[in-house]
């Protein structure tokens, strides 16, 4: 492969900000994460997201969010953070006994 570095490394090659893209499918489901795009402005991020993630009518609505604005739980949190929800079987209907033959 040729090794001459004739690429123009202009000053505008710096990375544009990253935006996370969420699409809402036509059937009334919630917005779901699709991927990300680079863009200079929110408006451009929306247009890029449409071109990259919705070329076949996949979305009726698109959200773009600066990636840096997202706060997420970490894998280290996994145990303790989700613990309060993991040890309460009585929050599930199967926990409760009902008389045989009755549909509840």
């Amino acid at each position: 492969m040729a090794n001459d570095t004739t690429t123009t490394q202009g000053s505008f090659d710096s990375q544009w900000p990253l935006w996370e893209v969420f699409l809402q499918p036509p059937k009334g489901e919630a917005h779901e994460h699709a991927g990300s795009v680079h863009a200079t402005t929110a408006e451009q991020a929306l247009q890029n997201a449409r071109d990259v993630y919705s070329r076949r009518g996949e979305a009726v609505s698109i959200w773009v969010v600066p990636s840096a604005a997202i706060t997420a739980s970490t894998p280290e949190d996994m145990g303790p953070f989700f613990d309060p929800g993991n040890d309460k079987p009585y929050r599930h209907p199967q926990f409760y006994k009902v008389p045989r033959g009755v549909r509840v």
Binding site: M1, A2, T8, F12, W16, T40, T41, Q44
Partner: peptide, 22 residues
């Protein structure tokens, strides 16, 4: 590779314009 490099170089003004607009 030459075609990719040319496309990247020729797209420079688009990147510059987007950055200036932002």
């Amino acid at each position: 590779l030459a075609a990719r490099r040319a496309a990247h170089a020729e797209g420079e003004w688009v990147r510059a314009a987007a950055t200036a607009y932002a």
